[in-house]
Amino acid sequence: MIDWKKWKHVTKLDPDKTITPKAVAEIVDSGTDAIMISGTQNITKDNVSHLVEMLKDYSIPKVLEPAGTEGLRDDMDLIFVPSILNTDVAFWLMGVHKIWVQHFDVDWEKIVPEAYIVMNPRSAVAMVTKAKTEMTPREAAAYGECADRFFHFPIVYVEYSGTFGDPALVRAVREKLHGARLYYGGGINSREKAEEMARYADTIVVGNAVYEAEGVEKLRETIVK
């Protein structure tokens, strides 16, 4: 069984973005602990399958993080399932999950629930889920504490999605977690930023840097363990 709790660095690949097989090979060889296939917009069965096909011959742990039921498949090592905490739209906390469970044969051994705190108002995930992103570190920490203590989510994920976040807010969430692992994602494209957030997060997630110029080199800089 894959021990995802030991991961320090995860690379996120977006099915809606273009990447070459050569870049995928370099990412797998970079030292990252796992590959997560995840995106918000234009996620289809075909573009998810395209990424999975490029990864199939590698032994690195592979995670699917579905935004909905599109692209769902059962041949991944794990499925990280997000619930958005800071939204009034209940569909993103429970509704889409109910549809999935009702219509698909779920392999619960592969499921890892995530409690998302979405912080970038300009991100696709914030706009789609109508996330309430204006909050203080204390408010964010309260979301994290509720996710951990009330609902026993194994992962609390602070998501700044494309922009580098507030270390003080991430630290505040960290201080309120008892059992959950803290994931951080957003704007990490250098060693300095990786080290900053790795001080508080158990796992940092790097995505957009892969698609920038010298993307794989930037990715290697972010691997701090």
Rank of each mutant, 00 (worst) to 15 (best):
134 E>I: 14
53 E>R: 15
177 L>D: 05
129 T>E: 06
6 K>A: 13
50 H>P: 00
4 W>D: 01
180 A>E: 08
64 L>I: 08
22 K>I: 14
116 Y>E: 02
190 S>M: 11
173 V>S: 09
103 H>S: 13
87 T>P: 01
214 E>K: 08
42 N>W: 14
222 T>V: 01
154 P>Y: 05
72 L>Q: 01
95 G>I: 11
181 R>H: 08
175 E>F: 09
176 K>I: 04
219 L>K: 14
119 M>I: 00
108 W>L: 12
34 A>D: 10
30 S>A: 09
24 V>L: 05
55 L>I: 13
110 K>V: 11
129 T>L: 04
25 A>D: 13
162 G>N: 06
77 D>N: 06
58 Y>F: 14
163 T>Q: 12
140 A>H: 03
68 G>W: 12
173 V>R: 07
198 A>K: 12
1 M>E: 12
164 F>L: 06
46 D>K: 15
115 A>T: 04
204 I>T: 05
148 D>E: 05
57 D>G: 12
22 K>F: 10
107 D>W: 08
220 R>I: 10
191 R>G: 11
177 L>H: 01
162 G>V: 14
165 G>W: 05
94 M>A: 14
99 I>D: 09
202 D>H: 05
190 S>C: 09
174 R>N: 10
66 P>W: 13
39 G>F: 00
155 I>L: 03
62 K>R: 11
31 G>S: 04
209 A>K: 00
143 Y>S: 04
195 E>F: 05
10 V>R: 06
43 I>V: 15
142 A>G: 10
224 V>H: 15
40 T>F: 10
43 I>L: 07
50 H>L: 06
194 A>V: 03
223 I>K: 03
201 A>P: 10
5 K>R: 15
